[in-house]
Computed example of a mutant assay.
Amino acid sequence: MKFFAVLAVSVLLAGCVSPGDLESNDPSISTNTAKDPKRYALCVLPRWQDARSDVSMSETEYGYRLIAATNNMTDELLSIRKTSKGSAVKLYQRMAWAPGYGRGDMEQAVRGCL
Protein backbone atom coordinates (compact mmCIF):
# COMPACT_ATOMS: atom_id res chain seq x y z
CA MET A 1 0.00 0.00 0.00
CA LYS A 2 2.91 2.34 0.76
CA PHE A 3 4.18 1.80 -2.76
CA PHE A 4 0.93 3.03 -4.29
CA ALA A 5 0.88 6.11 -2.05
CA VAL A 6 4.43 7.03 -3.12
CA LEU A 7 3.53 6.38 -6.75
CA ALA A 8 0.42 8.60 -6.54
CA VAL A 9 2.39 11.48 -4.98
CA SER A 10 5.10 11.13 -7.64
CA VAL A 11 2.52 11.30 -10.43
CA LEU A 12 0.89 14.39 -8.92
CA LEU A 13 4.20 16.19 -8.52
CA ALA A 14 5.26 15.29 -12.05
CA GLY A 15 2.13 17.04 -13.31
CA CYS A 16 3.25 20.45 -12.04
CA VAL A 17 5.63 21.95 -14.57
CA SER A 18 6.91 25.49 -14.17
CA PRO A 19 8.65 27.59 -16.82
CA GLY A 20 11.92 27.07 -14.94
CA ASP A 21 11.42 23.31 -15.13
CA LEU A 22 11.05 23.52 -18.91
CA GLU A 23 14.10 25.72 -19.31
CA SER A 24 16.23 23.16 -17.49
CA ASN A 25 15.70 20.82 -20.49
CA ASP A 26 17.03 21.13 -24.03
CA PRO A 27 14.88 23.35 -26.28
CA SER A 28 12.85 21.81 -29.10
CA ILE A 29 13.83 24.74 -31.33
CA SER A 30 16.92 26.90 -30.83
CA THR A 31 17.68 29.50 -33.49
CA ASN A 32 18.36 33.18 -34.13
CA THR A 33 16.54 35.95 -35.94
CA ALA A 34 17.58 39.40 -37.10
CA LYS A 35 14.40 40.83 -35.50
CA ASP A 36 14.61 42.54 -32.13
CA PRO A 37 12.84 40.67 -29.29
CA LYS A 38 9.73 42.87 -29.18
CA ARG A 39 9.13 42.70 -32.92
CA TYR A 40 9.58 38.94 -32.95
CA ALA A 41 7.35 38.41 -29.89
CA LEU A 42 4.61 40.56 -31.42
CA CYS A 43 4.77 38.43 -34.56
CA VAL A 44 4.47 35.11 -32.68
CA LEU A 45 1.91 36.16 -30.02
CA PRO A 46 -1.22 36.47 -32.19
CA ARG A 47 -0.40 33.22 -33.98
CA TRP A 48 -0.05 31.41 -30.65
CA GLN A 49 -3.30 32.97 -29.45
CA ASP A 50 -5.03 31.66 -32.59
CA ALA A 51 -3.75 28.17 -31.77
CA ARG A 52 -4.52 28.29 -28.02
CA SER A 53 -6.44 30.66 -25.79
CA ASP A 54 -4.19 30.22 -22.75
CA VAL A 55 -1.15 32.19 -23.98
CA SER A 56 0.52 35.02 -22.10
CA MET A 57 3.45 37.28 -22.92
CA SER A 58 5.76 39.03 -20.47
CA GLU A 59 8.78 41.26 -20.76
CA THR A 60 11.95 39.96 -19.13
CA GLU A 61 15.26 41.56 -18.30
CA TYR A 62 16.73 40.31 -21.59
CA GLY A 63 13.73 40.21 -23.92
CA TYR A 64 10.34 38.50 -23.89
CA ARG A 65 8.73 35.24 -22.84
CA LEU A 66 5.59 33.62 -24.21
CA ILE A 67 3.91 30.88 -22.20
CA ALA A 68 1.06 28.50 -22.95
CA ALA A 69 -0.11 26.82 -19.76
CA THR A 70 -3.04 24.80 -18.50
CA ASN A 71 -3.82 23.90 -14.89
CA ASN A 72 -0.37 24.35 -13.15
CA MET A 73 1.46 22.97 -16.17
CA THR A 74 3.50 25.03 -18.58
CA ASP A 75 3.07 23.31 -21.94
CA GLU A 76 5.06 25.65 -24.20
CA LEU A 77 7.62 28.33 -23.39
CA LEU A 78 9.21 30.62 -25.94
CA SER A 79 12.24 32.52 -24.71
CA ILE A 80 13.31 35.50 -26.82
CA ARG A 81 16.59 37.11 -25.75
CA LYS A 82 18.27 40.17 -27.26
CA THR A 83 21.58 39.56 -29.01
CA SER A 84 23.95 41.90 -30.81
CA LYS A 85 22.47 40.81 -34.17
CA GLY A 86 18.79 40.49 -33.21
CA SER A 87 17.35 37.77 -30.99
CA ALA A 88 18.08 34.26 -29.78
CA VAL A 89 14.89 32.20 -29.86
CA LYS A 90 14.32 29.00 -27.85
CA LEU A 91 11.14 26.95 -27.72
CA TYR A 92 10.71 24.60 -24.79
CA GLN A 93 7.91 22.04 -24.75
CA ARG A 94 6.64 19.94 -21.86
CA MET A 95 6.39 16.79 -23.95
CA ALA A 96 7.99 17.62 -27.29
CA TRP A 97 7.41 14.08 -28.56
CA ALA A 98 3.66 14.13 -27.89
CA PRO A 99 1.09 15.72 -30.17
CA GLY A 100 -0.80 18.47 -28.39
CA TYR A 101 -3.62 20.88 -28.99
CA GLY A 102 -2.28 23.58 -31.32
CA ARG A 103 1.31 22.34 -31.02
CA GLY A 104 1.99 22.19 -34.78
CA ASP A 105 0.61 25.70 -35.29
CA MET A 106 2.73 27.01 -32.44
CA GLU A 107 5.93 25.49 -33.82
CA GLN A 108 5.06 26.84 -37.26
CA ALA A 109 4.59 30.33 -35.78
CA VAL A 110 8.04 30.18 -34.16
CA ARG A 111 9.63 29.30 -37.49
CA GLY A 112 7.37 31.52 -39.62
CA CYS A 113 8.24 34.71 -37.74
CA LEU A 114 11.99 34.27 -38.02
Rank of each mutant, 00 (worst) to 15 (best):
S56K: 07
G100E: 13
A14T: 05
F4A: 09
L7K: 14
R111M: 07
D54P: 02
G86A: 06
Y64F: 11
N71L: 12
K2I: 14
K90P: 06
R52V: 06
A34H: 08
K82D: 00
K82W: 00
L45W: 05
G104F: 14
S56C: 00
R47V: 08
D105K: 15
A34M: 11
A68F: 00
K82Q: 10
Y62P: 02
Q93L: 14
I29L: 14
V9G: 13
P19K: 01
A14G: 09
A69N: 06
Y62N: 14
V6Q: 15
A51N: 03
P37H: 00
V44Y: 12
V6W: 13
S79M: 13
G15M: 10
L78F: 02
P37W: 00
R52M: 06
I80M: 05
K38N: 01
K85Y: 11
T31W: 04
S24F: 10
M1L: 07
G15L: 11
A8Q: 07
N71V: 13
G112K: 08
M95E: 12
S30K: 11
K82T: 08
A88Q: 11
A51S: 08
W48G: 04
D54K: 04
P46N: 01
S58N: 08
D75E: 12
A14W: 08
D105G: 13
Q93T: 13
A69I: 04
S84G: 10
K85R: 14
D26C: 03
R47T: 01
T33P: 05
K38M: 01
M106E: 11
E61C: 01
T83C: 08
R94G: 07
R47S: 05
S24C: 10
L91A: 03
L12C: 09
D26H: 03
G15C: 12
G63L: 02
V110M: 04
P27W: 01
T70N: 12
M73P: 03
K82M: 09
